[in-house]
């Protein structure tokens, strides 16, 4: 049942190259995924601002357009306003827990250092071990880094809270039962006469194509994230062959091979979307001209646009909260490891101190 404990051990040069490679890879993937998501958000934003597709579905002028009803169902299914309210309520506690672990850890170092300094003041040259302050520099630097990370997290929490405050009213409306939601949307003239007209058909087809592009991107995101490759083999080979690792060159070549094609597809998707959105703008202009707008239909349109945006905001806030919760939980694990490092070194220093004291007393 022998298992090689040192199976994963590699030369230092390979270890360092792998760290940099992994950073490059995750930067690349994050940028690619970020680009795709930004494009989808842009698309959703443009459509919402044009009241699409709701305007095309709004036959009677007083019932809820299908796409809005679907958006409402979708966020109710995801837990509605309550689920994001709960996550927001939990954030401060998560922050506090992390702060406490960090504060405890640094306090341990401070206390041991104080004792060490007191003993050095008392015994002078006879207390000849390295001062704790010097030994603790790297740990304190790590601690300072954690503090700045927590400060950034606090700012992120604030952004989420503000987003929530801005949109919660409309989100709440979208979560209401159908009859209440319908009553809250002003009535207007029906646009029945426009159904079947060419511009409506064109808009429908353009919007369908945009939906397809968005779906493709979801698939693409999954594929990009699923790419695996063991770069350590390449680095080991290079080291054995050349005696050194040209990390930058090897990494960029490999990353291009792994992700180059995906990058092309993403760029193509952006170009197609831009074209389609342009077409939508043109068609929508025509559509607006045909529609007979008055104060009521404008009011109705405004509310429908706000409801569509509320859905997008809900999705964004949910994602932010999921990210924030995961961030704090991941950070707790990391801080607990840091706390262990601090308590281990303090324990070792205490043991050493006790031995030194014994020696001094005996001498």
């Amino acid at each position: 049942k022998f298992s090689d404990l040192f199976e994963k051990m590699v030369p230092m040069a390979v270890q360092q190259a792998m760290t940099i490679y992994n950073q490059r890879k995750s930067d690349f993937v994050n940028r690619l995924v970020g680009t795709m998501r930004e494009a989808t958000n842009l698309c959703n934003g443009v459509l919402a601002s044009l009241n699409l597709p709701a305007a095309l579905e709004d036959l009677s002028g007083d019932s809820i357009p299908q796409s809005i009803a679907e958006k409402a169902r979708s966020i109710v299914q995801q837990g509605g306003l309550q689920s994001i309210e709960q996550l927001i309520k939990d954030l401060p506690e998560l922050l506090t827990r992390n702060r406490e672990i960090l504060d405890e850890s640094l306090k341990m170092l401070d206390e041991e250092e104080t004792t060490d300094n007191d003993l050095r003041a008392k015994f002078n040259q006879r207390w000849n071990r390295t001062p704790s302050g010097d030994l603790y520099k790297p740990l304190r630097a790590e601690g300072a880094n954690f503090r700045s990370i927590l400060d950034k997290a606090v700012q992120a929490d604030q952004v989420v809270k503000e987003r929530y405050n801005t949109h919660c009213e409309m989100i709440a409306l979208l979560c209401k039962p159908e009859n209440e939601l319908s009553a809250a949307i002003p009535s207007a003239n029906p646009t029945k006469t426009l159904q079947g007209s060419e511009v409506v058909n064109m808009l429908r087809s353009q919007i369908t194509k945009l939906d397809e592009i968005k779906k493709e991107r979801e698939t693409l995101e999954g594929e990009v994230k699923a790419v695996t490759f063991d770069m350590s083999v390449s680095f080991l080979t290079a080291l054995a062959r050349d005696g050194a690792i040209n990390e930058e060159q090897l990494s960029s070549t490999q990353l291009e091979q792994l992700y180059g094609a995906y990058n092309q597809r993403v760029q193509a998707s952006l170009r197609t979307q831009e074209e389609l959105l342009g077409q939508v703008q043109t068609s929508h202009q025509e559509f607006s001209n045909l529609k007979q707008s008055n104060a009521e239909s404008n009011q109705r349109e405004e509310v429908l646009k706000k409801l569509a945006s509320a859905h997008d905001s809900y999705v964004e806030i949910s994602n932010n909260l999921r990210e924030g919760t995961k961030f704090y939980n991941d950070l707790t694990e990391i801080l607990l490891k840091f706390q262990n490092k601090c308590s281990d070194i303090v324990f070792a220093r205490k043991t050493e101190r006790d031995e030194l004291l014994k020696e001094l007393q005996q001498s």
Binding site: A153, A156, V159, I334
Partner: peptide
């Protein structure tokens, strides 16, 4: 992404 990345910190640094 809104929150800072913890990627660097997840890697166990070599203790010298």
């Amino acid at each position: 992404s809104l929150y800072p990345s913890l990627e660097d910190l997840k890697v166990d640094k070599v203790i010298r």
